[in-house]
Amino acid sequence: MESRITFENVREAIEKLPMLSPNVSRLLQIMADEDYELDDVVNIVKYDAALTAKVLKAVNSPVFGLLNPVTSLDRAISYLGKWIVVSIILSDSTGDLFSRPLAGYEGQQNALWRHDLFAAFSSSEVARYAKQSFEKELAFTAGLLHDIGKYVFAPFWKQASGEALGRIEEGSVADYLAAERVLAGLDHAQVGYEMARYWEFPEPLQQAILYHHTPEQAPERFRALAYAAHLGDMCAMMAGCDTGNDGMQYQLDNGYIEYFELTSESLAQILLETEIQFKQAISSLSLEEEVDK
């Protein structure tokens, strides 16, 4: 079948990828100011999934020889230092990783960016309700990066996506993820995992990306994080920040109950708090005119 995608196709596409940031110009503006602080850079970088990925990749690259992977952006930037971070940013080209329309998903420009940002805040809020100790910072990053696979997957998926909703409606597949697997041979979570591995993300993030729709299948030590990303993803779709024709078309994994103490009231609080933070972030990044549809 022509529309089927192989891992080889995906790897070839990943190897051609630049790491792109939607906030490069904003960051350049800040750095043009002689008085800028490291915190100014941190505040921009942490809302930019691609740049976060690049900074984490840099700090965890073999050249630094760290014994333990650094998964928190603040620590990564502190460790790398201002100038290395600036070098990373400057070496970046104009970014479309999260802003490019997602062809196969009929996702508008910036839809992935809005979705990921909302999911990041939601995942972080969900993490506050964890039944066991849980690193909030990591949940934010996992939420921000969970759907990166769509960037590479979308152009391939375009050929087969037309049948996806019909298959779900007729009940021959359980949800959109299953439709991707049946129609294309693999799904966006698997593609995201390949990207995360290629960029040498810390393992918890790789696993959260791979299992963000199927957290019950994640290895136990990464499962809470995978659930946080899963629930953040769900919250983003519920809030209308979806990535196109797959909005609300994924199964909720009710196994989260074992890891998070959520009630209808706390979920409402999560959505409310996320909405406030999301709007602040969009405003502070001066992206309002770009992301407002």
Partner: peptide, 16 residues
């Protein structure tokens, strides 16, 4: 008022 698939009562904010 849409719902996520397989949503439980907690997640059925749309219905509420």
């Amino acid at each position: 008022g849409a719902s996520v698939m397989a949503g439980n009562d907690t997640f059925n904010i749309g219905k509420r």
